[in-house]
Design a binder for these strands. Structure first.
Length: 580
RNA sequence: CGGGGUGUGGCUCAGUUUGGUAGAGCGCUGCGUUCGGGACGCAGAGGCCGUAGGUUCAAAUCCUAUCACCCCGACCA
């Protein structure tokens, strides 16, 4: 590879469109360019990194028994109607029609299509289990594409699907993928955590996410400071806090002119917000519900949606709330309301609470559930916060942010049932195939790696996914001695199987050094006057800045050794269950 | 989807308030000097000012519509 012959358009200035550092560096280092919001072109160096990540994924999938396939991106609507997801996916699905006016979509994921393939060709227990995967573009018309490759509308994902006879087999497949995923992210040089997760629209029960820690990440996670419990905040179990018991006092109407928030009323009454009950009105599909939660807590809408089993969940607009309560938002409460009321587990534990009076400018105090209002159901509906007790031990929860790079699900029979994918067991009985699915956001992982590995000068690639292991920079392209030496070393490196790039542009040395730091090659070899006069080259490590002079005859051997060392530092503690 | 903002050369931006010859820096081309951390000088090229209408003698600038892109929010009771 020679820079003079490649498209490697680095930028000195930060493009206005990029907010976070990894996005800026992707653009500045000449790895990607935007085509439309959330849609990107991969330039040659970006493509090389992408291939590196994809190959690591491939190797680990194959190591654990996966077989790669290629599935259609354009998929017929009928399949999606069969699984009912044509409706569920809603606006997020890219839809199109063919010339005969038939409906199609650009696949946001591939459960339907692969199940369809399977059911035609798999019908005996002898053919199971199967682990099949594909790495390709997926399409989701995100409300708000963001942060470059992080939340794109067209993105590259690896999806593996497991097909087993029973749930025992599923657990085995799931465990394999758990290990495979750990290997993938270790090999990519990422600092990540495995957390319990909600299974969301995909469905199923058990699920884990692989979260790359980064402050810019969109996923919130909590983890125990004592045991190994870790969870996505969306699914983290909340332990109800018990408040000191009090005798129920007489309900009392209090004057709260224009005080609408818990905070304002709490200040007036000099009462801790934990003695308030917030009333939130939601529309769950077509049903209106009132959700009650302690004044200092927040509703976890994922939990609420799961509890209600609805497809769409949104808060009621204030006009609608006013018509139900005969009062404005800010003064509404559960007393005398005739719709379904569900309460967080902590609500019944509050004695003598404050609630809106359903009368403008008034609240009630000393309100007690059951006596003053009914609760139709109690559930864990709240968001867990930092410092709360761990649900698994006596420790406390810490919180962090991260990038969700991978997620694994135990689907069970949801799709095989919907799409009628069955096999015949040992006894001649028809059984549903038990499925799992396992996704890695490949393009997102690439960006996550930059988010975690950079400095003020640019990217610092882990050597396992670097676009090139070594860059050779001749200081002056006018000095024939330097050019010859650089070319020789370049050739020897190639022969030795080192991934090497020669920056043979007729640029000043400073420009080439800056670009090398920006693009982030792990090793840099400089050929200069010293090479011609004294026979040495300078070898420098990007991550530490260490530099040393080496005789040019020993340069290739030195680089080989450095590459090996770096690879070992980045290597996984290989988990290999296929080998004895 | 709601709110805000921006569209001017490849990139970063000024010019718009107050209508009157389209600008700067970087990048690009040529020549010269320079040459181990984004050099300097000289000479150049490159722009239907997002798009479509309108107002006006005259529109990057004013009006209307539209498109694109970016940011914030979508927990407020």
């Amino acid at each position: 590879m020679k820079v003079s012959q490649m498209l490697l358009p680095t930028l000195r200035e930060v493009p206005a469109e990029a907010e976070i550092i990894s996005h800026q560096l992707l653009l500045r280092a000449g790895l990607i360019r935007k085509s439309a919001s959330g849609i990107y072109t991969y330039l040659p160096m970006g493509m090389r990194v992408l291939h590196k990540v994809m190959n690591i994924v491939r190797e680990e999938m194959d190591r654990f028994g996966g077989y790669e396939m290629l599935l259609p991106i354009v998929q017929p609507a009928e399949l999606w109607k069969e699984s009912n997801r044509w409706a569920v996916y809603g606006e997020e699905m890219f839809r199109l029609k063919d010339r005969h006016d038939r409906d199609f979509c650009l696949g946001p994921t591939h459960e339907e299509i692969i199940t369809e393939v399977l059911k035609g060709d798999v019908n005996s227990y002898k053919q199971l289990p199967l682990l099949l995967y594909q790495i390709q573009n997926k399409y989701r018309d995100e409300k708000r594409p963001r942060f470059g490759l992080m939340r794109g509308r067209e993105f590259i994902m690896k999806d593996l699907y497991s097909f087993d006879k029973d749930f025992e087999g599923l657990q085995e497949s799931y465990d394999r993928m758990y290990k495979a995923y750990s290997n993938v992210f270790k090999r990519c040089g990422l600092n990540f955590r495995i957390v319990e997760a909600d299974s969301g629209a995909i469905g199923g029960n058990t699920s884990h996410e692989f979260v790359v820690l980064a402050s810019s990440g969109e996923a919130g996670v909590v983890y125990c400071d004592d045991c190994d419990y870790a969870s996505n905040i969306e699914s983290a179990e909340a332990i109800p806090e018990t408040l000191a018991g009090e005798t129920a006092l007489k309900k009392e109407l209090i004057d709260t002119p224009n005080l609408r928030s818990v905070k304002e009323v709490a200040e007036l009454l000099k009462l801790n917000p934990k003695y308030f009950i917030k009333s939130l009105f939601y529309k769950a599909d077509d049903e209106e519900v009132l959700v009650l939660i302690r004044g200092d807590r927040e509703v976890n809408e994922i939990k609420l949606q799961n509890y209600l089993g609805c497809l769409e969940l949104e808060m009621l607009d204030s006009d609608k709330v006013a018509s139900i309560c005969q009062a404005d938002v800010g003064f509404v409460g559960p007393i005398g309301i005739d719709i379904k009321i569900i309460a967080d587990k902590e609500v019944p534990l509050i004695a003598n609470a404050v609630v809106g009076a359903n009368k403008n400018d008034y609240h009630y105090k000393n309100v007690n559930s059951e006596r003053d209002f009914k609760i139709d159901a109690v559930a864990d509906l709240r968001l867990v916060g930092e410092g709360e007790p761990c649900p698994k031990c006596t420790g406390r929860l810490e919180s962090a942010r991260g990038i969700e790079a991978g997620q694994i699900f135990q689907l069970g029979t949801k799709y095989s049932d919907a799409l009628n994918a069955k096999y015949t067991d040992e006894n001649g009985n028809e059984q549903l195939i038990v499925m799992g699915c396992y996704g890695i956001g490949v393009s997102r992982t690439l960006q996550a790696a930059i988010e975690q590995n950079h400095d003020a000068e640019g990217i610092i690639w882990p050597i396992t996914i670097a676009p090139a292991q070594v860059v050779i920079i001749p200081v002056s392209t006018k000095d024939l001695g330097q050019v010859t030496a650089a070319n020789d070393i370049y050739g020897f490196c190639k022969e030795a199987g080192i991934e090497v790039l020669l920056d043979d542009r007729d640029e000043r040395a400073g420009v080439k050094f800056k670009d090398a730091d920006l693009v982030g090659y792990p090793i840099r070899l400089t050929v200069g006057k010293k090479t011609v006069n004294e026979g040495t080259v300078d070898i420098r490590l990007r991550h530490s800045g260490e530099e040393q002079a080496v005789a040019k005859e020993e340069a290739v051997a030195a680089i080989e050794k450095l590459v090996d060392n770096l690879l070992q530092g980045q290597g996984p503690e290989f988990v290999d269950i296929n080998k004895p």
